[in-house]
Amino acid sequence: MKKITIKRKYLAFPYAIFMLLFVLLPLALIVFYAFTNADGSISLENFINFFTDGVTFNSFLDSIWIAFITTVICFVIGFPVAYILANKKYNRNKTLFLLFLLPMWINFLLRTIATRAMFEAFGSWLDIEITFGKATTIFGMVYNFLPFMIIPIYSTLSSLDKSYTEAALDLGATPTKVITRVILPLAIPGIISGITMVFMPTLSTFVISDLLGNNLVQLLGNIINLEFTQNSWNYGSALSIILLLLMGLTMFIEKKYNNKTQTAGGRIW
C-alpha cells in the first residue's frame, strides 16, 4: 500500500521543477539585479538612488497616496452597497449582487479604454475639454476596483448572525449606533480584505495611469515599466523589490487582522 502513495506523490514532480525554474529562479534574478549595479558588482546603489533621486521617490509617494484615496473612495461607495445588498430588509434578490460581479469578467484594459471613451463622449456632448490627469486616473481606478471592495464586505455581512443587531436594538441602541458599534466591528474581516484587494492592485498598476493620466501621472508601476523598457534592469528590479515589500507589508497587516474569519478573498468564480 505504502509504495503506491509514494508513487502518487511524485506526480507533482514536473510541476515542482517548473515552478522552481519559472517562479523561484526569476524572483532570485530580480533580487540579484536589485543588489548589483550595471557592472555586475554587489552594491546598494539602486536603493540609495531610490531615496535620493527625487523623481522616483515622489512617484512612490504618489502611488501610495493615489492607492490610499482610491481605497477610501471605494470603501465610502462600496460599504453602503454591500450593506444594502446583504440586508434582507432592502434586498432579497441575488441577481443584483451578480450584476456587481459581471464587469470583472470584462478585460480590465477594455474597461479602462471604455472609461476613456466615455470621457471623450461626455466631452463632445457637453462641448468641454476633459483633461486627463490625476482625477481621471483615480476615477478609472475606482471604476476598476470597486467590485473588489464590495464582494468581501458583502460576503461577511451576509453571513452575519442577525440576532446581534436585534439584541442591540432590543437593548436600546439607535440604528446608527447599531451600524457603528455592532455591524462595522463584525464586518472588519471583510473590510480589511476589501481594502487589501483594492489597495494592492492600485499600487502596482501602470495601465490605468497610462491610459487615463496622459503621462501626467507616474506611479511606481509606470516607473518599473519604464526602467525595464529602457533596459535599466538593476534599478527596475530594485523598484520591484520595493513594490513587493510594500505589498508584503499590506498582506501582513491583513493577515494579522484577518486570521480569525476567512472571507471570500481572491477570485469568486
Binding site: 519559472f22 517562479v23 502596482s204 508601476g221 518599473i224 534592469w233 528590479s237
Partner: peptide, 27 residues
C-alpha cells in the same frame, strides 16, 4: 511548501511576474 510556492504567482504583483520572467528568458 508546494502550496506556498503555488501562491506566489497568485499573490505577486503582475508586473513583477512579468519582468522577472523577462529577465529569465533574457538570461
Amino acid at each position: 511548501a508546494m502550496m506556498t510556492v503555488s501562491k506566489i504567482p497568485m499573490m505577486n504583483a503582475e508586473i513583477v511576474t512579468g519582468v522577472s520572467l523577462m529577465l529569465l528568458f533574457l538570461l
